[in-house]
Design a protein around this nucleic acid. Sequence first.
DNA 1: GACAAAACTGGAAGCGCTTCCATTTTGTCC
DNA 2: GGACAAAATGGAAGCGCTTCCAGTTTTGTC
Lengths: 334, 334
Amino acid sequence: MATIYEVSALAGVSLSSVSRVLNDHEHVSEKTKQKVMAAMNELGYRPNSVARSLASNRSNSIGVLVSELHGPFYGEMLSSIEMELRKAGKHAVVTAGHSVEQSEKDGINFLIDRNCDAIIILIDSLSDEFLIELSKGSTPVVILNRLIPEIKDKCFYIDNELGGYLATKYIIEQGHKDLAYISGPLFKQDANERLNGHKRALNEANLKFDEELFYQGDFLTTSGRVGIDHLLKTNKPFTAAVCANDEMASGAMKGLRDHKMLIPQDCSVIGFDNVYFANYLHPELTTMNYPINEMAKMSAQWILKNVYKHTEVFVNNKFTPELIVRESITKNKT
Amino acid sequence: MATIYEVSALAGVSLSSVSRVLNDHEHVSEKTKQKVMAAMNELGYRPNSVARSLASNRSNSIGVLVSELHGPFYGEMLSSIEMELRKAGKHAVVTAGHSVEQSEKDGINFLIDRNCDAIIILIDSLSDEFLIELSKGSTPVVILNRLIPEIKDKCFYIDNELGGYLATKYIIEQGHKDLAYISGPLFKQDANERLNGHKRALNEANLKFDEELFYQGDFLTTSGRVGIDHLLKTNKPFTAAVCANDEMASGAMKGLRDHKMLIPQDCSVIGFDNVYFANYLHPELTTMNYPINEMAKMSAQWILKNVYKHTEVFVNNKFTPELIVRESITKNKT
DNA sequence: GACAAAACTGGAAGCGCTTCCATTTTGTCC
DNA sequence: GGACAAAATGGAAGCGCTTCCAGTTTTGTC
């Protein structure tokens, strides 16, 4: 592999000059630029990115830490991030924390040790305090799907409360009065806020939140199914099940079918996130859109702007969920 | 950030000795090892991975090139690869080729320029010839989901023909005689082989393959739906739809419902791949399991063994698909 | 206790590039 | 044509580590 040294020899200029054309510096004459380019071509020169990193103290790699690499959510996210980064010649180093605190910390250290220029984080197990502390370190950090007030310009999040509110408001508008709610684990910010929005909509319609028609799930499919079992056992009637995410909604649909109930005739269902399989379900799931792609893209742009000083881009931190009406909700006629 | 130099000063030993304990070399006395470790601790020393890479000509990063980062398949794959790699202190650099030839080539160059120690490839657009040529280069390459005879020890693949055969055999055993087939794009090896397996099973049962009940899709959901429309228009009766992957099967299920047909009563459906949402569908999809997790893990192990000379692990290149019986197929009583 | 072999340690040269500083060249204006 | 600033170039010192080589110490053996 040819090095910059050979290029400089062949082109008859100094190392510095070669380096300058490599980095598109100003103050290089057109003439030497041409000579250098020609030499590079002739030698099939390819810059050694490791050497550049060492000398410049820039690795051009961005670490991405997520809970899991699989699942409908993270794939979309990664996809957007990678696309944005690659356009700028940067690359993504990925790692998973598996929702285990120590493992997530390890993941962060791993990425820092890898000399990532910045880190994008989308996880649940680490505390706000830890992340605040982390963000004081020398490696810039941005946080997805979470609002930490102390570092809010580095957070990209949706208004979960609003989403919860809109979902429930819509259901109420369809004539439903008896709503069951299957939440995510309430120690998670998003689960909590979505529930709050739900309660606000209820309140606004003078409906009261019924503890008996509430089940705390874990955001996974099975807990939707189990939740429905649990709710049905109370013998309290309900005509709609509000689920805090699509996975649980899909489980809830299964649960309802186990009990020979028709969706949406016997019970309407709404989800949250609008993951891509939401419209593979039957009936297609009405849900709240979570603009994960834009958010991920935005986080990448934040890094391009703040870490690599790319030309000004507009950065938006707060995103708005939107209702996606499909087939899983029907008007209530009772 | 402390450097190896400061460690050596504090420990009162030479640079080389520090480096040696860092790399777990033999021929370091317990005493100096302790001194060095203590110094490292005291200084909070963290090795600079970039400098190590430059000096050792090893980046400890493995490039992963896939068609898309999202979708049910790639997430699982990445997840397994990352887990295996991280255990060994290596990391994954990911990039997507979006099934566009030039873009996939760019992706490869991108990863090579990043000094990846090896590359894992899972794409369709690049020709066998290109990949054979690539594998002669200095960056080791492994290929997932594809068998290229010339470099077969670097390929990890399943027996698609067998999978196609087993799927159809099972359906025939359930009493079905009139089978429709929705294939993937036939320029893709896997699509082609699955179809061949289908034909073999047909043949074995003395059923003939009916061109009219064949539709070539593109492995995406919509083409399953469109495929059913097309097949139904022929007015040729069929009692089961064999789909070359789960996404198309899910589309096919939608298509059948559009025509008010019940699954599996009016038409059975079988998929292929066993992606995780296959059992979110209703009815739950009977399909062929594609052991993507093991295959991905195995490819990572191959690299650990062949590139990093880790202790011997058994590497298996060819994997076997297995039938997963769920609810989308019923016995045919006609 | 002598001697060879093995184990251990330090010095120093690089890995391929960036970047600061000093020097040389070019251009502009009177 | 000369003075001066600005632009272009080259030299050289690192970036933080690995690794080869040679020298020194320890160990084991008879």
